[in-house]
Design a protein around this nucleic acid. Structure first.
Lengths: 192, 192
DNA sequence: TGTCTAATTAGAAAAGTGTCTAATTAGAAG
DNA sequence: CTTCTAATTAGACACTTTTCTAATTAGACA
């Protein structure tokens, strides 16, 4: 099924997000009306009605046909139903969003790393998790490192290797046994 | 089925009629996020995100739970689906509109009648139809009137009884045969 | 307890929107 | 052809909304 793009959906909401236009749609769902008649029904001036009708027409929601000396407007029920149906299921909404999903992690890394060195250990849990994720990436998988090697690698980036080493264990990104350390698969890490 | 009232529907549209909020919904449909994270993803400042989230919360579309030192927001998918479904079928829209359906006719009558007299015969088709509808109401149903009587009745309201009499026939609100006139049932009238 | 961090609130500037009046256009009817 | 009517367009004004910065609050952690 074809799902509407972000822009169409947004236009639809913007057009409908107005009491007067909503009333217009309501009246026109029931019968054809001239601009003058609509103006009377809604207690607004003709130009205001024209303006709203033009917006509704942008989306193809109403149609106009000339009749004698008036313009008769009516609702295009099919167009309304199409827009309405195609509209938001939570799944289709999700697919609309084209934000860079890793923007957040990148920003945290940019904030805390400079010249490939860790400026500071983040205080907050989530940020620390991201930094540790990056740090554990400095170790090869399926390789065991004696503690000394671990410290040396960490110290390339930050002097406090003791804290960071302990945190890697804490977050279950690495494991220690018999004095040697190794990387754990991502599936084992503590969730953020 | 319960259908939403005009006000709820309008609020819903207003809340959704904004690109930033639409993106927020999109992101939160996929996963929980903190305010700071959302700000990064959308390239906006935290207060702006807070502001939008507050609006989404008004409608119950998102929920918040505190976690460590952050607030995690997520989409209430059920609420979204409920609002979405309950929303506009063209029939439910029609039922929302509480405009006085006869406001138009009343206004035309008010415009052309004064002290129970017809100030002027409307030029336009639709308005003339409304005036004639009122005029024909001055005759009893199932009664035949000779032409002289018809003229006298019409002249109570307007001097040009000839034109108005002819129009009543034209619009098929009255019929004439063998020099007498009578009202036709509304079903027979020419449609406006 | 005090410090730090994330979130919220307050308030202001800028952009957008709804409605009006006045002017113009298009078309019907004499 | 001219006149009249309904609709539209143009332009102005008020109100609302979005976003920002600065200030405040609430809560975690040392």
């Amino acid at each position: 099924m074809e799902s509407p793009d972000m822009q169409t959906l947004l236009s639809f909401f913007k057009i409908m997000a107005n009491g007067s236009r909503l009333k217009l749609v309501g009246v026109l769902a029931q019968r054809e009306c001239s601009v003058e008649e609509l103006a009377t029904l809604l207690s607004l001036k003709e130009p205001t009605i024209s303006h709203h009708l033009a917006k509704l027409r942008e989306l193809g929601l109403v149609q106009m046909r000339p009749d004698r000396n008036t313009h008769l407007y009516c609702l295009d029920t099919d167009a309304l139903n199409t827009l309405n149906k195609a509209m938001l299921t939570s799944t289709s909404i999700a697919s609309l969003t084209d934000v860079e999903p890793e923007a957040w992690e990148k920003k945290v890394l940019r904030t805390y790393l400079e010249d490939n060195c860790l400026k500071k250990i983040p205080a907050s849990h989530k940020k620390r998790w991201i930094i540790l994720k990056w740090l554990v990436g400095q170790f090869e998988p399926d390789v065991t490192y004696p503690e000394k090697a671990v410290n040396e690698i960490i110290q390339q980036f930050h002097p406090d290797s003791a804290t960071l080493r302990r945190e890697l264990i804490d977050y279950q990104m690495m494991q220690r046994e018999n004095g040697v350390y190794w990387r754990l698969p991502e599936i084992a890490w503590k969730t953020v």
